[in-house]
Amino acid sequence: MKTESGDQRIARYGMTIDVDKCTGCGTCAVVCHMENNVPFTVDESDKSRNMAWMRIYKVDNGLDYPHVRVVYFPRPCMQCDHHTPCVSVCPASATNYDGLTGIVDQINTRCIGCRYCMAACPYMVRCFNWWDPVWPKDMEKHLNPDVAPRMRGVVEKCTFCSHRYLKAKDKAHNEGRDYLREDEYVPACVEACPVGAMRFGDLNNPEHAVAQLIQSPRAFRLLENLHTEPKVYYLSSYEWVRKLADNFA
């Protein structure tokens, strides 16, 4: 795709999440479930086996009242840009890094369910379908027809709502454009965030807000020491929050 100014460039879609703004309301996680037909289990209290493309971590500074401070880390797929851990290990080429958008996608019909990608991912992003997905009868009507539900025995994960990208690209093509505007392709979680803590766009495009936000001294990423180069950036003004994002020997 080209930019609005007409330059041909490869996009690197990314996200910023301002943890100072996030209230931990969980809307992003709920809309993600709805948008992507993410199934739920009978016992959702078992977090080790539930399905969550967007998981929200509640983290505190470890101090007692009145000094205790809490932040929430919404965690979608980090869409690693460098030697993407899950892509290189998949034996059946079921995980794909799209060179034109930087989106790490999952080809569910090709997944053999070996779960090697889950072992490779340090962010615990990937979920295995331990059961067949079952929705209550009335709920089936609410399933998103743009996203195929997955079956038992395959791995799934956040795709930055890549079906929305395809839809936006088709729309642009029909309108005779060969570029996408900043607001045309936005994942469901970003669209739904009630406090505007999440922003989305092309990190390579200096006109996009995210490209400017990641230059901020408030920006940081999870586990930078591992050099997976995530395309999801977090923003915080607090040093203790930024320190929480990595391990230090």
């Binding site: 290189s88 290990v89 034996p91 079921a94 997944c111 053999i112 090697y116 295995f128």
Partner: peptide, 26 residues
């Protein structure tokens, strides 16, 4: 038995990702 989709086991041959150590193992 360990893979979630045993009937798709042959995909690791058919759609082999030659950069994966698991492909080499299989």
């Amino acid at each position: 038995i360990d893979i979630g989709q045993p009937l798709r086991g042959y995909f690791s041959f058919w759609h082999a990702n030659v950069h994966s150590m698991l492909t080499e193992v299989i």
